[in-house]
Simulated assay, not measured.
Amino acid sequence: MRLNHYTFPKVIISSSGMCTVGRIRHHLKHNLWQSRNSLVFVGYQVEGTLRRKILDGIKKTKILGEDIVIESEIHDLKGFSGHADQKFLLNWISKFKKKPKKSFYSSWRREIF
């Protein structure tokens, strides 16, 4: 919630993939209406979810009881999955011509970031 008090640019990474529950709803409420922001989705969007509706181009939605006009730039990066495991990700990275200098591994979620 403190993020809402800062006006400097930031990257917010949130996990509720379909934008139906959790902190993502709060972040959307406080950031979707600002044209200086971008919202980047990766992975699949289930029909009927807020995430899918945003990608389909809705201009206004209700979030946490408040009407929000969508002014942010919306981006959809196809080809990513939130369900890839360590082995899959390491195999994927091994195919890069130019390898990343650094990656991060979360033992809690068993994923590479």
Rank of each mutant, 00 (worst) to 15 (best):
S94G: 06
I93M: 04
L28T: 09
C19H: 02
S35R: 10
H30S: 15
G65W: 01
I74A: 10
F88Q: 05
L50Y: 01
G22E: 01
G65Q: 03
K29M: 14
F96S: 08
I70A: 08
L90Y: 03
K101V: 10
Y44W: 10
T7E: 11
G48H: 04
A84Q: 04
K29S: 14
I13A: 05
I74N: 11
I12C: 07
H83V: 07
K53P: 00
I63V: 04
K60Q: 13
R36W: 05
K60D: 10
K98D: 12
K10S: 12
I54C: 06
H26K: 13
K78V: 13
Q86D: 07
D67G: 02
K97W: 02
T49L: 01
K99V: 09
S38A: 14
E71R: 14
N31V: 10
S106W: 04
D56F: 04
K98S: 11
S94W: 02
K102R: 08
F8N: 12
S103C: 10
T20E: 01
S14R: 09
N37K: 09
Y44C: 06
N4Y: 15
L39T: 07
I74P: 11
G65V: 04
T20A: 03
M18V: 03
W33I: 04
H83A: 03
A84C: 01
N4V: 15
G82W: 02
Q86V: 14
G17L: 09
F104A: 08
K97I: 11
V11L: 12
I112Y: 12
T7I: 14
V69S: 13
G48Q: 04
K87A: 14
K53D: 02
G82R: 02
I24W: 03
S81M: 02
S103P: 00
S94Y: 01
I58W: 03
I74Q: 10
H30T: 15
L89V: 04
I74F: 08
R52W: 01
I112L: 09
H27R: 14
N31I: 10
K101P: 01
K87R: 10
